[in-house]
Amino acid sequence: MRVLPLCMLVLALAGCSTQHTAPPTTESISTQAPATQVKAEPAARQAPATLYRNAEELVGKPFRDLGEVAGSVCQLSIQDPPPNLATARRQMQVRASQMKANAVLLHDCQMIRGLAGCYQQGICQGSALNVSHK
């Protein structure tokens, strides 16, 4: 019976010792030249998809429907600022861009109360489109 706790202690100590890394020494830090440091460039951001508010704007433009997209903003409590529908629309446009769409046809934006986890929520829905500009 005494062997089991002893074995568990040995295994725990062995597991902890394999994760230990030595801190860098001051010698290795001082030998690095500042010119060798590489600065990370910020990731390139995708431009959000163009927003079309009604279907008549697409008349005469060939397009392909890539699927539904949505954006939402949540107001957690009454003390938080109210949700902004412009932010929900922008989030929807970014999601469409991630689907390789260059446009979004807006279907609906609305404010909803009483959802689990949100005091009030702003939701926008639309269709991600790939519009040809010929």
Rank of each mutant, 00 (worst) to 15 (best):
P81H: 12
N54W: 13
A128V: 11
N84E: 10
V73W: 01
A40V: 14
K100C: 04
V73Q: 03
C109S: 15
Q121N: 12
Q19F: 07
P23A: 12
D65I: 06
Q46G: 14
V38G: 12
H107Y: 13
V94G: 01
T25L: 03
H133R: 03
L51M: 14
T21C: 01
Q91M: 14
Q110F: 10
N84F: 06
N130C: 00
N84K: 14
E56T: 15
A116D: 11
P24M: 11
T18Y: 03
E68H: 04
P83Q: 11
S97I: 05
C109Y: 07
G114I: 12
Q125I: 10
Q75F: 01
S132Q: 14
E27N: 04
S72E: 12
K100Y: 07
S132V: 13
E68M: 04
S97Y: 07
C118N: 09
Y119T: 05
E27D: 07
V69F: 04
P34N: 13
A40Y: 07
Q91A: 15
F63Q: 03
S127A: 15
A101V: 10
Q93T: 03
G126H: 01
D108K: 15
C109R: 09
Q37F: 06
H133T: 09
E57A: 11
T50M: 07
V38H: 15
S132W: 06
V69H: 00
Q125L: 13
Y52I: 06
S77P: 07
E27K: 08
G114A: 12
Q79A: 12
A88W: 00
V69W: 00
P42W: 05
K134A: 11
V104W: 01
Y52L: 11
Y52R: 14
H107P: 02
I123A: 09
Q125V: 11
R95M: 10
L106R: 10
K100V: 06
A86W: 00
P81A: 12
V131R: 00
A22C: 03
A40L: 14
D65W: 04
C109G: 13
G67N: 09
P81C: 09
E56H: 09
M99E: 02
Q19W: 06
C124L: 05
Q91Y: 13
Q110V: 08
K134N: 07
T87S: 07
R113I: 09
G117R: 08
L76M: 12
Q120T: 14
F63V: 02
A35G: 02
D65M: 05
G60L: 03
S72D: 12
A55K: 11
P24S: 07
Y52E: 04
E56K: 13
Q32A: 10
L85G: 05
C74H: 03
A44Y: 09
S132T: 13
E27W: 02
